[in-house]
Design a protein around this nucleic acid. Sequence first.
DNA 1: TAAAAGATGTGCGAAAATGCACATGGGTGT
DNA 2: ACACCCATGTGCATTTTCGCACATCTTTTA
Lengths: 299, 299
Amino acid sequence: MSLDNWDEVRTAYHVARMGTVSGAAEVLGVHHATVIRHVDALEARLGTKLFQRHARGYTPTEAGEDLLQIAQTTDDQFTQLAGRLRGRGNTVSGDLVITSLSIHSQLLTPVLKRFRDEHPEVVVRYLTGDRVFRLEYGEAHVAVRAGNAPDQPDNVVQPFIRQHYALYATQEYLAKHGTPKSEEDLQNHYFVGHESRENRAPFNQWLVKTVPAERIVFRCVESRGQLDAILSGAGIGFAPVWESPVYPQLKQVIPPKDEWSSPLWLVTHVDLHRTAKVQSFLKFLKADARTWDDSWGAR
Amino acid sequence: MSLDNWDEVRTAYHVARMGTVSGAAEVLGVHHATVIRHVDALEARLGTKLFQRHARGYTPTEAGEDLLQIAQTTDDQFTQLAGRLRGRGNTVSGDLVITSLSIHSQLLTPVLKRFRDEHPEVVVRYLTGDRVFRLEYGEAHVAVRAGNAPDQPDNVVQPFIRQHYALYATQEYLAKHGTPKSEEDLQNHYFVGHESRENRAPFNQWLVKTVPAERIVFRCVESRGQLDAILSGAGIGFAPVWESPVYPQLKQVIPPKDEWSSPLWLVTHVDLHRTAKVQSFLKFLKADARTWDDSWGAR
DNA sequence: TAAAAGATGTGCGAAAATGCACATGGGTGT
DNA sequence: ACACCCATGTGCATTTTCGCACATCTTTTA
């Protein structure tokens, strides 16, 4: 059995430090009767006299000196802790956890790097993966989500950018199968697509609707896998327009259409949305994003 | 401003450890509503979210993790402290502080040494000096006092031994001035006595009454000084009978009288009197004292 | 799919802790 | 020696805190 009342320890600590009940009461901002009762209760619980009572005040016994020393370090540590925690609320430091689908890694990583350049005391943790990291469990501060606007109750959702898609193929593929002359001509080509026809991405819906199923010859669940398939010359497929500059071998077969694009959302948990760290990052991210549209020629 | 409510920290600590409010409430033995209110109050005071709330429980934020670590060590230290303090009440260990006048040092030191042999985990601190160390201020556990029975309200007083005094002189003095044949013959000798005629020691009162003032030629305040004066051959004087074996050059001029003797008292503060350590020492001391009377031939 | 289990969160009555006033008692200084 | 000052200690009224019951929501299981 351990000490189950830390406030009484704190009271006894101040009594030992001050030497008098009255002095401790003043420091603690409580009535001296409260201090007496705390000390009495603590001594009764421990079965040990902590103080020698006399007319000049309370003198710590051996046990009281022992407690004084322990509680002194505790008080120091708590003071430091309170300083850290209070400061943390209004400073941009510590971990900044961002999450998104793997496909957005190349888009976000440079921004994260630049943000860290401006805030060196921040440790960026960028979580990507198949599963969606949940803000409710404190797994991330900010999430970048695609598709329809999320409507989780405790999430703060902001529109980020529209993600424009176009149809790409490699030079190698086009040399072998020719370049589609028109959209009708697409029916004679081979495609890389999503494994499931049910996928809600707008360009996937368009593909399913436009092209015969047997022409979608390479299907992946992961966007990254689809990109790899296109890069290997397996067929024509969708890729974000911002990704094409990275792969010179990709040729744009059909330019982006508005109906293919899907919005990206910035999502934060309501508890963390107001913190300086998150606000600072969101502001930085949106400012940075404004420069993207120009360089890609996307709206 | 620091953390002024350690119990709330303790509550938050258990929440962080358990991961759920309900779990923490069970461990703490309180209602889960209390836990929620503690955490809310602590977060409000700190201005920082400590936990991410969700349907599965409370997940610590960065700040919560920080608090968890600090409070973990605090809990460990308090547990150890409680163990030490609880044990101390019933075991014979730690400091044992004894005080007496300097004159009793040679009497008590051997007993203290033997007591420590039986209780090696005890550290004996033997305070002697001119001033009386006060039990009320926790300066000592046990005091050996001479004279009338002390009647301080918070002190537990027990009779110890009677201290028998006799008149001594050195061989050298007796060779020079002769040995008193009778008590009347004392008037022709020289004496070592207390500086003040008012001193309440019974043998001093007897001396003042029996011997002309001009025959008390060497006067000291300290008993030790008087003994040194006798040893130097300055005159005849009183010394405790138990001290004579230590100094072979001392010769007993007149054997002890009951009216010269003064009682010694064992005094303890009421708060410490019941502790095992003090009780153990008192018992040991009284048992040891029973052997003294025999060897000194005193009653 | 529906129900059961377990978690958080809130209004209200009960209980406990607190503050206040006053008594007591020793220490200090004139 | 006396009075004043400061500190401890206690009964009582008040404020605060706690526990209970119930509502709500999510996850899991039948």
